[in-house]
Design a binder for these strands. Structure first.
Length: 343
DNA sequence: GAAACACCCCGCCATC
DNA sequence: AAGATGGCGGGGTGTT
């Protein structure tokens, strides 16, 4: 079973350096076809299109690019374009939204624009049924991808050469990202910010978007994702307890006691809610905390390991390399803030 | 990087 | 009868 939130696919060190230092201002362009769903359209606008230069300066340059001159999207709204399709050719990240009719062939000029962007190594992102457009463009052949669960069968039968993974929220393969339905667009967009600007920046965006589960008064400093959308009370309480005790050794047995469940049932609940095992989730929380500490503090890697519950620096390095793709120090060099003694 | 040990996961089956 | 839960054990994974 693959992780629903496929955090194993972290960027390589080369990618990190390039992402951080290669461009003064990142350009994101979103292609909008007629009938594009409002929610999915709004997510990239909210994440990339809102000026958040107080989090990271410069913030993204974001453009909406309707595929037609006056593109009417869902619910009767008309995309008030600030960019034309030409802008796709200049973007570092090209986002393709879902289309009204997944059975229709996408317009040729859109396919051409996507292929062209891919050839010049732009990051290509298909949100929800946008995966159909990417598949039409041939970008998903023999690659892992996902789409809305309602379209899985249709997608699989029409694009048999794509390795479809219906269990993940989003997936990346060779610079091509696809996300599952609707709300998964948020997860994917935040992941893109995380790759570009680091975990602290992505978590701050998430916090401002009031992402669950931290709706209570004591907002956590770092977003501990993934969390289940609707965990039952005992499970949520156990997970909350983990969040505030990451510096200490925690076993699955501790979780079973806090959740008042057997080990077997706990694993089942995690699997149903998140698609990951308790241990995988715990490790993810520790790594996210470690990432935040590396970004925002100057403390030695050994202390980062201790505070994040990773135990030893060697263990932290091991998992960092495996899941984030770079060493802790390389990560700090790339994403460290002035508070961490960098930049 | 390898090895040893501890811990974890999941298919299977029984029980509630 | 169907679904949820829990125990077992072999194989897998994490930690040192």
């Amino acid at each position: 079973m693959r992780s629903r939130c496929d955090f194993r696919r972290g960027p390589t060190s080369g990618k990190l350096a390039k992402m951080r230092k290669g461009l003064a201002k990142r350009r994101v362009a979103m292609a909008v076809q007629p009938g594009a769903p409002i929610f999915e359209l709004s997510v990239p606008c909210e994440v990339f299109g809102t000026n958040r230069s107080d989090i990271h300066d410069p913030w993204y340059e974001f453009e909406v690019c309707p595929t037609e001159s006056a593109t009417e999207v869902a619910a009767g709204f008309v995309a008030n374009q600030n960019g034309s399709m030409d802008n796709l050719a200049r973007a570092d990240t090209v986002i393709i939204l879902g289309c009204e009719n997944i059975h229709a062939k996408p317009p040729a000029h859109l396919i051409d624009a996507i292929r062209s962007a891919y050839r010049r190594r732009a990051r290509i992102v298909g949100i929800c049924s946008g995966a159909f457009v990417l598949a039409h463009a041939g970008l998903l052949d023999h690659r892992r991808a996902t789409t809305h669960w309602m379209h899985i069968d249709e997608f699989a039968s029409r694009f048999p050469t794509v390795t479809l993974d219906p269990s993940v929220l989003y997936v990346e393969d060779a610079g091509v990202f696809t996300s599952a339905g609707t709300a998964a667009a948020i997860d994917l967009c935040l992941e893109l910010v995380r790759q570009d600007l680091g975990a602290a920046a992505a978590n701050e965006v998430a916090r401002r978007m009031v992402m669950p589960p931290h709706r209570d008064g004591g907002q956590a400093q770092y977003l501990r994702w993934p969390m289940p959308p609707h965990p039952d009370h005992d499970l949520a309480e156990a997970m909350q307890w983990v969040q505030t005790n990451l510096d200490r050794p925690i076993t699955v047995e501790d979780l079973t006691q806090r959740a008042h469940l057997s080990r077997r049932t706990l694993i089942r609940r995690f699997h149903d809610a998140l698609g990951v095992t308790p241990q995988q989730w715990l490790l993810r929380q520790r790594l996210l905390l470690a990432q935040g500490l590396l970004e925002t503090t100057p403390i030695p890697v050994q202390q980062v390991a201790e505070r994040s519950g990773m135990g030893t620096a060697a263990n932290l390095r091991h998992h960092f390399s495996q899941h984030v793709g770079v060493s802790p120090l390389a990560y700090r060099r790339t994403f460290g803030t002035p508070a961490a003694g960098h930049l």
